[in-house]
Write a protein that binds this DNA or RNA. Structure first.
Lengths: 67, 67
DNA sequence: GAAAAATGTAAAACACGCTTGACATGAAAT
DNA sequence: ATTTCATGTCAAGCGTGTTTTACATTTTTC
C-alpha cells in the first residue's frame, strides 16, 4: 500500500523526527512506513491523518489488487 | 476502538461468515473485531469499509483519549 | 420439537507492526 | 573543516492481529 506521508511532510517542512514525536511512535516507524516496509496500524493511520488534518483515505492509497 | 461492523451487518442481514468470506478473513477475525478483542489492520479496515460502501472513518470510531 | 444456521469460546501457532539501540551517509549551517 | 541535522540500514525482540481447529450455545426455520 502506497501512502503520501513523505509528500505531506515535505510540503509542510516537517522532519521524520517531528512527525514521529507528534504521533507518538519512533522515527524508525515513520521511515518504515514511508519506505513501504509495512502498513500502519489503524490507530496510527488515524493519528497521522489527524495530524495532517485530513482523512485516512486521503493519505493511504489502497490499490485494487491488494489481497 | 469501537466499530459499527455488527450494526452494519445486521442492517443488511449479512452473517459473520458472509462478511468474513467477502473480505477474505476467517469468521473468528470478524467475531473478535465485533467484540472488541482487537483492532483491524488498515488493510482489513479498508476492505470492510469498501464492502459496506462507506469510509473507514464512518465504521471505526476513534476516541480522543486513545494513545 | 428437531434440524440447521448463526454466534460464541478457547488455545496454540504464525505474521506483522512497532520499539530499541547502534551505526552510516549526505546535506546544511557556522 | 567541523558540527549538526535529516535520512537511512540492520537486527533482535515484544505485543497484537489473524488463522486454525474443535466444540458449545443461541436463534431461526420447517
Amino acid at each position: 500500500m502506497e501512502n503520501r506521508i513523505a509528500a505531506l511532510r515535505k510540503e509542510r517542512r516537517i522532519s521524520q523526527a517531528e512527525l514521529a514525536e507528534a504521533v507518538a511512535v519512533t522515527r524508525q516507524t515513520i521511515i518504515s512506513l514511508e519506505n513501504g516496509r509495512y502498513n500502519a496500524s489503524l490507530l496510527l493511520a488515524h493519528k497521522i491523518a489527524k495530524y495532517f488534518e485530513t482523512t485516512i483515505e486521503d493519505i493511504f492509497l489502497f490499490e485494487e489488487e491488494e489481497s
